[in-house]
Simulated scan of single mutants.
Amino acid sequence: MTEQQPNNKLHGKTLEMILNELVAYYGWPELGYRIRINCFLDNPSIKSSLTFLRKTPWARKKVEDLYLNTRFK
């Protein structure tokens, strides 16, 4: 049974989808500037970033917050 989450703006978005959209929009250098974590600054990749973000709640929150505050054109 799936629950409706009308107030959750991230509902239906996976962390991978969010990260891919942010990288496509900002690029790794700008993303690393906006969120100062090594997985964005030192040899970044989607795979290594996802591994880190899944283990680190505070970093994941920063990525989700940036996503919610970004107005994609």
Rank of each mutant, 00 (worst) to 15 (best):
V23M: 03
I37C: 08
I35R: 04
R34V: 00
E16I: 00
I35W: 07
Y25L: 10
C39Y: 00
R36G: 01
P29M: 04
I35D: 03
E30W: 05
A24C: 07
I35P: 08
N20V: 10
F40W: 06
V23T: 11
R36Q: 14
G27K: 09
L31W: 14
C39H: 02
L41N: 09
G32C: 08
W28N: 05
Y25Q: 11
R36E: 10
L22V: 15
D42W: 01
R36V: 09
D42P: 00
I35F: 08
Y25N: 15
Y25S: 13
E21F: 05
G32V: 01
M17Y: 13
P29N: 08
E21Q: 14
G27H: 10
D42F: 04
P29D: 02
L15H: 10
W28H: 05
T14A: 06
R36S: 11
M17R: 08
N20K: 15
A24D: 14
R34D: 00
E16L: 00
E21L: 13
N43Y: 02
P29Y: 06
I37N: 05
Y25P: 06
I37K: 11
L22E: 08
E16H: 01
Y25C: 12
Y26L: 08
C39N: 03
V23Q: 07
T14G: 03
E21V: 09
E16N: 03
L19I: 06
D42L: 07
G27W: 11
N20G: 11
L15Q: 10
F40S: 06
A24S: 14
E16V: 00
Y33F: 13
L41I: 11
R34F: 00
L15Y: 07
T14P: 10
P29H: 03
R34G: 01
L19M: 08
N20M: 12
L31G: 14
E16R: 02
F40Q: 01
L15E: 07
F40D: 02
N43P: 02
N20W: 04
L19V: 09
E21M: 14
T14D: 11
I37A: 05
L31E: 06
M17A: 13
L19R: 00
K13V: 04
I35M: 10
R34Y: 00
N43W: 00
Y33D: 09
L31A: 14
F40R: 01
V23G: 03
E30C: 04
N38C: 07
I37E: 13
M17E: 15
L22W: 12
I37V: 13
G32N: 06
E21D: 14
D42S: 04
V23P: 05
R36I: 07
L15W: 09
G27Q: 12
C39E: 05
Y26E: 08
G32D: 02
I35C: 12
V23C: 08
E30S: 04
K13W: 14
C39I: 05
Y26I: 14
M17C: 11
E21K: 15
I18R: 01
G32M: 01
Y33A: 12
I18M: 02
F40H: 04
L22A: 11
Y26P: 06
A24G: 10
W28M: 06
